[in-house]
Design a protein around this nucleic acid. Structure first.
Length: 395
DNA sequence: AAGCCGGGGAG
DNA sequence: CTCCCAGGCTT
C-alpha cells in the first residue's frame, strides 16, 4: 500500500518517544480546547461527509447554518441521491462552487448503486467517489471510521512544514508526499479522527498563517520554526509572480568598417555589465511602419549618447536590400522572445547601416567586429539575438 | 503541471 | 479596491 512506500521514502526524524509525547500533548490540548461544532456531535459518516465538503471552500462560521439546513432537508445518502437538482442548488445557494454539490449527489448515487447505500470505510475506496480527493477521503476515513489516515489540508501543511522547517514548495507533489508521510508516522492510531481535527483546530485558531510567534501553541516544544524564530519562512509557496510584458527594438548598427555598435549595461539596469545591441523599449514594428518610423527611436537615443551624433553628420538607413521591399523587410526582422523570472521580453532585431563611424566613445559603447564581439560578456538574451541574426557565427 | 471554480476575509 | 485563500476536477 501507498502508506508503507511513502513512509520508507520519508522517515520522520523523531524518536518513538517524541512521537508518543507529541500525540499526548496535542490530544490533551484538543480535549481541553476543541471547538463545539454541529458535525462533532455525530458519528454519522454522511453528516461528516457533508460537513467536509462544505468546509473545503468556506469558513466554519459560514458553514454552520448551511450544514444544519442541508442535513434537515436531506438527512441521509438516499435522500441526497434522489433529490431534485433545484433542491440541491437552493440548499447550496451562496456557498459557491456548485459543481461540488452536484458531484456529491453523483457520489451518493454511486454509493447507492455500488456500495449498498453505505459509505465505504477506507480512504482508498472513498477516493473512487466523485468529489472526494485525498483530503476528504482522509477526513471521512479517520473521523467517521477511525482509520489512521491523515487529512492533509492547508492547515496541516502549514503546521508540518513549520514543525520540521520543510522549505520545499508545498505545491510540489513530492513535498505533499513528505508531509503525508510524516503525518502517517505522527498520527495516533487510537484516535486518528481527533488527531486530525486537533491539528485543524490548532491551525485555524493558533498556528495561523499570520501568527508567527504562537505563544499559546501546545506544540512549541516540537516546533523547530518556533524554536528558531523562522515561522515566517514556512510554508513555502511558489508565488505566482506577475510577469509583465515588454517589447524592445534591438538595433544592429553597422558602420562602413564592418563593425557593430555594442553597449554595456550600467548600474541599476537589468543585466548590468553585460554587452548588448542597443535595446530601446518600443512597440514592435508593424506592417505599416515607414523606414523613418523604424529609425526614429534610434536617432532619438543616439542624440543622447556620447557618439557626438547629429542628423547632419550621420546618415542612418535600413540595409539596401530592405529599403524598397517592405514584405522582405518585415519577414527579416526576427522576433526573439525571452523570459526572465519577472518579465517577458519580445525583442525585434532591426539592422541599420550608418555611413560613418564616430571616434568619441566612452567605455559604455564600442564599435566591434564580429570576431571581437564574440569575446565580450553577453547575456543569454544577447546570445539568442546574435544567434538569430547570424546563425553561422557560432556563439 | 496549470487553469478553473466562486465566495469571503485581509490588507 | 485587489489579493489571497482551499480543495478537486479537467486538460
Amino acid at each position: 500500500m501507498k502508506r508503507v512506500k511513502i513512509i520508507e521514502e520519508f522517515p520522520i526524524p523523531w524518536s518513538e518517544a517524541t512521537i508518543q509525547a507529541f500525540r499526548e500533548t496535542l490530544l490533551a490540548w484538543y480535549d481541553q480546547e476543541k471547538r463545539d461544532l454541529p458535525w462533532r456531535q455525530t458519528k454519522d459518516p454522511y453528516k461528516i461527509w457533508v460537513s467536509e465538503i462544505m468546509l473545503q471552500q468556506t469558513q466554519v462560521n459560514t458553514v454552520i447554518p448551511y450544514y444544519e439546513r442541508f442535513i434537515e432537508a436531506l438527512p441521509n445518502i438516499q435522500a441526497l441521491a434522489e433529490a431534485e437538482e433545484e433542491t440541491l442548488l437552493n440548499l447550496w445557494q451562496g456557498l459557491g462552487y456548485y459543481s461540488r454539490v452536484r458531484n456529491m449527489q453523483t457520489a451518493a448515487q454511486q454509493v447507492m448503486g455500488e456500495y449498498g447505500g453505505q459509505l465505504p470505510k477506507t480512504a482508498e475506496a472513498l477516493r473512487t467517489l466523485k468529489g472526494i480527493g485525498p483530503y476528504t477521503a482522509g477526513a471521512i476515513a479517520s473521523i467517521a471510521f477511525g482509520e489512521p489516515e491523515p487529512a492533509v489540508d492547508g492547515n496541516l501543511m502549514r503546521i508540518v512544514t513549520r514543525l520540521f522547517e520543510i522549505g520545499e514548495d508545498i505545491g510540489k507533489a513530492s513535498t505533499k508526499r513528505q508531509i503525508t508521510a510524516y503525518l502517517y508516522q505522527m498520527i495516533d492510531p487510537k484516535r486518528p479522527g481527533d488527531f486530525n481535527q486537533a491539528l485543524m483546530d490548532l491551525g485555524a485558531t493558533i498556528m495561523t498563517p499570520a501568527n508567527l510567534t504562537p505563544e499559546l501553541s501546545p506544540l512549541k516544544a516540537f516546533d523547530q520554526s518556533y524554536q528558531h524564530g523562522t515561522a515566517e519562512l514556512y510554508p513555502v509557496k511558489k508565488s505566482k509572480v506577475t510577469v509583465t510584458e515588454h517589447s524592445f527594438l534591438a538595433y544592429i548598427l553597422m558602420n562602413p568598417n564592418g563593425e557593430v555598435l555594442f553597449r554595456k549595461h550600467g548600474e541599476g539596469e537589468l543585466l548590468t555589465g553585460l554587452w548588448h545591441f542597443p535595446l530601446i523599449e518600443q512597440t514592435l514594428v508593424m506592417d505599416e511602419a515607414t523606414e523613418q518610423e523604424m529609425l526614429e527611436p534610434l536617432t532619438d537615443w543616439l542624440t543622447g549618447t556620447d557618439l557626438a551624433f547629429s542628423k547632419e553628420q550621420f546618415h542612418l538607413s535600413l540595409p539596401q536590400a530592405y529599403r524598397y521591399d517592405r514584405e522582405q523587410l518585415l519577414r527579416h526582422l526576427p522576433l526573439v522572445k525571452h523570459q526572465f523570472s519577472h518579465r517577458l521580453w519580445y525583442v525585434q532585431l532591426v539592422p541599420v547601416q550608418v555611413n560613418q563611424s564616430s571616434n568619441s566613445l566612452s567605455g559604455q559603447l564600442e564599435w566591434l567586429t564580429l570576431e571581437e564581439l564574440k569575446t565580450y560578456p553577453m547575456s543569454t538574451l544577447q546570445t539568442k539575438l546574435l544567434q538569430r541574426w547570424l546563425p553561422d557565427l557560432g556563439v
